[in-house]
Amino acid sequence: MATSRKRLNPNNILLLSAFGGFIIGILNGLGIQLPLWTPLAVLIFLLIISISYWKNIDEAAKEAHKFAWYWSSIGWISLAATFYTTMQYNAVPNSLVSLLETKFNSPTEIFMAGIISSIIIQIIFYSIIWIGWWARTRMR
């Protein structure tokens, strides 16, 4: 049987993560050239934060995350698959194509925008479902 141990406050761990993101954002905003090892540092930082957060939340909080992870993934995969299939019929509006061509200067920029928009949409889906899981306990 699991033994209990002193937990760290998971909110503090999330605050540390937000602070890390804030610092990176500020440096980027100031146009400071980040060293080549920055992506690796970000990866290690996020892994440490994620492991630490997971070890310090209780089982109901984990259940909420599992639920949000599963349904947000399913939602996003379904949406992306639908969008991708639609593109096969050349059904992308011309206005969207010309917007992409004027907004971005290179295929790399379009690729990066695709990654970022994927992450943002996933986070939105995840947050809505996660909030919904907890909100349901207040409605009874």
Binding site: D58, E59, A60, W134, T137, R140
Partner: peptide, 25 residues
């Protein structure tokens, strides 16, 4: 119980069934 208040609320409202170790606790 060394869990969050939100988790107590989730268990009380029947939204979440605790694991066996937590139920024993």
């Amino acid at each position: 119980l060394d869990i969050s208040r939100q988790s107590v609320n989730a268990i009380e409202t029947g939204k979440y069934d605790p694991s066996l170790p937590l139920a024993f606790k």
